[in-house]
Amino acid sequence: MHNQTTLNVFWIMVKRDLLIQWRNWAEFIFRVVMLPFILILTYGYVLPKIGVLPASFPNDLFPGMVGMSLLITGIHGTAVPLSMDFNNSREIEDRLQAPVPVMVTAWAKMFVGMIESWIGALLVLPISLIFMGQSLRLHLTTGNIFLLFLILLLSSFASAALGLLVGTIVKPNQIAAMFPGFLMPVIFTGAIFFSWSALVKLPFYQVLVLVNPLVYINEALRHTMLGASNAMPLTYSLLGILAFTILMGVMGMRRFRKMAVR
């Protein structure tokens, strides 16, 4: 009975967040689409067309775009509302007063962040088809469709966990600094524009980028979508995503509890 009540409240909180997001759908689409759009337009269409990048580059870029959009949308979708809720509007107080464990609110926030990250990843598809459709050579089989689903699920969980941690650390007045100070380094060191194995010529950088969860997500997607032999071994990339999810999740949950019951 108690668990049933907790689950009901969880779904009501999810419904509340989705309703608010739905009401701001135009802003959501704009926010989610703009970054992959401009990157795909530049690196997937313009630069290969004028010969600055090889014609096969869009194919290597595609998994990275999916991974980036998924991670960034999930982080943004969890972190920004959480930071605003705790520090500015304090709207979350009503949910924290619900007669369920306070962590239910955190799980609901993360779940909504996961849904948003999936939408973010899906929105990359039409943009990619429009600008890079002719260059894409995906190797998707029935077997690795299931694997792809698992990677996307795990990655969306990682993005929401990272969003939970960021949202409980960053103050609303620091959100503007989040893009150049946090998201840009994540994007440009995240194995979007290069495969991790290609960094063998820069051993220090190759090790350094391993602190970025996007590297593991993109390498796993590259392995699954392209059957790329030069991608990081799937076991390593999956373990990397899992380790980051657990680490960020535990730290985020601790921070959330501290914010909820000061």
């Binding site: 009540t5 409240v9 509340r16 608010i20 304090r90 709207e91 107080e93 009503d94 007669p99």
Partner: peptide, 23 residues
């Protein structure tokens, strides 16, 4: 003391969601 209402919801929704949180 402060306004912690859900600003993205209507007045009716604020009450209904609160009631739903409480079972």
């Amino acid at each position: 003391q402060h306004n912690n209402l859900d600003r993205g919801l209507t007045a009716f929704e604020n009450l209904v969601y609160h009631g739903r949180y409480f079972g």
